[in-house]
């Protein structure tokens, strides 16, 4: 396993739908760690990934991988993305439409690099059979696997993923998460992924960094971040999504998806304004009343 940490300390101004916000992020990612970046859209998550990859130069600051300086605005260092040991999985996958699956992977080979890695990765993501197809002929999940495999061809030490599973259905996401964990275990890269999906965060991430308006609002283990009340942390905790809400006998009857199953919850009516279909929440079981904690 690589034992190199990544240090990020940058300032950057970011134009968002809400206007220009100033980003100010200091973050240390541990060797081999899986870090989830989360937070509302426009908070600077993708921008942070792009700064690490060298696709954007921050207005000021430093990105350092161990003793290698990748970006240093005071010393005028901006190492080109080509020369950073970084793999990037784009939100739109960015597969080359004119190349087959195999050619997409082979494109990434460095000069003189052993071509065996292409077949190895095709096997790892179970795409050997589809190696001759063009991206347009593949399903979303298959395209996602091609993008992932292609990003790993150069054996990056840092893998950056920008909402890689946003477009996949639930069961496909589960399989992709397994695959990512397998690959992470096998190749031992550091991983930073942007995600909104709580289940994904809990399954994959060692730590979560929550960005808000360009600043890190919270960093910690998923348990620490999402269970505000530490005293209750030993109680069972379930992640759910609201499907529908009705009022009956002065109570809210909420249909929610919890652990892949549709459940009915009876809750105090006071929660009605927050509990709208599509909202995510954590459910705590206690003997008296169920407690709901909303997540945005």
């Amino acid at each position: 396993m690589s034992d190199t940490p990544l240090d990020i300390s940058i300032r950057h101004s970011l134009s968002t739908a809400q206007g220009v916000i100033s980003m100010e992020v200091a973050l240390a990612v541990k060797p081999g760690e899986i870090l989830a970046l989360t937070g509302p859209s426009g908070a600077g998550k993708t921008t942070l990934l792009r700064i690490v990859a060298g696709l954007i130069q921050p207005q000021s600051g430093l990105v350092r991988y161990g003793s290698e300086v990748w970006t240093d605005t005071t010393g005028q260092v901006l190492r080109a993305p080509q020369r950073r040991p970084v793999g990037f999985v784009f939100q739109d996958y960015a597969l080359f439409p004119h190349l087959t699956v195999r050619q997409n992977l082979a494109f990434a080979l460095d000069r003189g690099q052993d071509e065996g890695i292409v077949d190895e990765l095709l096997r790892a993501v179970e795409l050997t059979e589809l190696a001759g197809q063009k991206p347009a002929q593949l399903s979303g999940g298959q395209q996602q696997r091609v993008a992932l495999a292609r990003a790993l061809v150069r054996k990056p030490q840092v893998l950056l993923l920008d909402e890689p599973m946003a477009a996949l259905d639930r069961s496909m996401r589960y399989r992709m998460q397994d695959l990512l964990l397998d690959l992470h275990w096998q190749y031992r890269f550091m991983m930073i992924l942007v995600t909104h999906d709580l289940a994904e965060i809990f399954r994959l991430a060692d730590r979560v960094a929550r960005l808000e308006d360009g600043r890190i609002a919270q960093v910690g283990s998923p348990g620490e971040i999402y269970t505000h009340n530490q005293d209750l942390s030993e109680e069972p905790l379930l992640y759910g999504e609201v499907l529908s809400v009705e009022v009956a006998d002065d109570q809210l009857v909420v249909l929610a998806l919890i652990q892949q199953q549709v459940r009915r919850l009876r809750l105090p009516q006071a929660l009605a304004p927050q509990l709208t279909p599509g909202r995510s929440f954590l459910l705590r079981y206690s003997l008296e009343t169920p407690m709901i904690e909303l997540i945005d």
Binding site: A53, R83, D92, A94
Partner: peptide, 23 residues
């Protein structure tokens, strides 16, 4: 063309020249 095509090629180690002619 989506900007990500160019950026993907860069993060895969390819120069602007190669990216232009091959992607």
């Amino acid at each position: 063309l989506p900007a990500s095509l160019r950026e993907a090629s860069y993060t895969l180690g390819k120069s602007a020249w190669t990216t232009f002619f091959k992607v």
